[in-house]
Amino acid sequence: MNETHEKELKVFIDGALHYFEQVSQEHAEVKTPYLLTNDMVADDFTGVIDISGIRNGAIYYTAPRAMLHHILLALGESQSTEELYKDLVGEIANTISGNARKELGSEFTISIPDILNGRGIRIEKNKNHKYAIPIRWKSYTSSLIIKLH
């Protein structure tokens, strides 16, 4: 991992930690990021943000249904529906990506979220570097996947 990749990963890790701290007043734990050597299999719900401008690629946030249910409770949400789970993974991906512009600048352009619905969807590895950042909150593990070139 070169210095640029390390700095960028730190921006996203800080963003993810800040998100969980703010919405739940509980710390999340980030496990060691790793370079994906194979396709990644998506969890129940995945939010995708396309990146353009100074960098190209995508940011994925993928999480299990039970974790999203608990995040909704932490937000004070009384409902748990498929639509809210999809909305939530998109919003988490959007928030972490948008917050990254504080360090990466406004030329780091983000799209509105796209949602992948369903466990087992393959997030294809390609020739670009792609890192996975495991995020543990309560007893659940989700992943932030950074694919930038």
């Binding site: 928030t95 972490i96 990506s97 948008g98 917050n99 512009r101 600048g105 406004s106 983000i110």
Partner: peptide, 8 residues
């Protein structure tokens, strides 16, 4: 907004 840069 989530867009946290100053210029936005």
């Amino acid at each position: 907004s989530a867009l946290a840069d100053k210029s936005t």
